[in-house]
Design a protein around this nucleic acid. Structure first.
Lengths: 126, 126
DNA sequence: TGTACATATGAATACCTCTTCACATAACCA
DNA sequence: TGGTTATGTGAAGAGGTATTCATATGTACA
């Protein structure tokens, strides 16, 4: 099928790893999720939503971006089912919908807080 | 400090979330890590290294990319202390060095394998 | 010593992403 | 009804990123 044109040193290990390699489709989906978490402003939006729903203008205020930028980011997150919106009149309340992303966020943030010991030039939160 | 020029609906919630918001520096670091995991080829490299070290040409073969591309990707991962290299003659054996990234990978891959039903690109398009 | 080999790297290109601006949509209120 | 407010969206520009090609570096081996 997909023959590799390059040399191989440890053919057995290569074959074994290839066997365990997830499907390209699954890897692409996983990479997409990580990509959605790779922007500081989107990260701020999701962190803000960890405690519960917020409307767009509050999310914009908390994350320090324009409401248009926040709306664009929320649209992207919504398209990937990571957040969901509840309409109440002319307001839109967003919530974190994906429990898996919540786990990734918790793990990642716990790590950065935990490894602040490795960056002793700065102390904890504001 | 950083005053928000936009309206706010729930001022208390906004203040509380702001209090809990991690430092911009930490958020940027976290976003960087996620960004490094947001490319399918880099993801393949890291998955291949979950079981142990491999040389560059084997990594290129396993991940289906050119050795130059693999080397570029490994250089990036190495610069962020996610992988480390061991030289043996003219070969370079890379290993996964960051236990936190290993956890993120395990968590993410376990999730994608268990949820085949979830697929994005379907715009909610309100 | 010279040649072949494994890896590293710089530059160039094509692609993608984020932000902003302008405007659209839709709900609320006088 | 018209005006104001909250959010949504398209287009465009700036900036970032990934891949490739060519070449450099350094090791091994004849």
């Amino acid at each position: 099928m997909d023959s590799c044109t390059t040399r191989v040193v440890d053919a057995d290990r290569v074959a074994a790893v290839r066997e365990r390699m997830p499907l390209a489709e699954d890897l692409a989906d996983t990479a997409d999720v990580f990509g959605l978490l790779s922007d500081p402003n989107r990260l701020r939006l999701l962190v803000a939503l960890l405690d519960g729903e917020l409307c767009v203008c509050d999310l914009a205020a908390v994350t320090g971006q324009s409401e248009s930028a926040a709306s664009h980011a929320l649209r992207l997150l919504r398209a990937h089912r990571i957040v969901a919106a509840r309409r109440a009149g002319r307001m839109a309340y967003y919530r974190l919908e994906d429990p898996h992303v919540r786990m990734l966020l918790d793990l990642a943030l716990a790590h950065t807080e935990h490894t602040e010991a490795l960056h002793p030039e700065r102390d904890g939160n504001a």
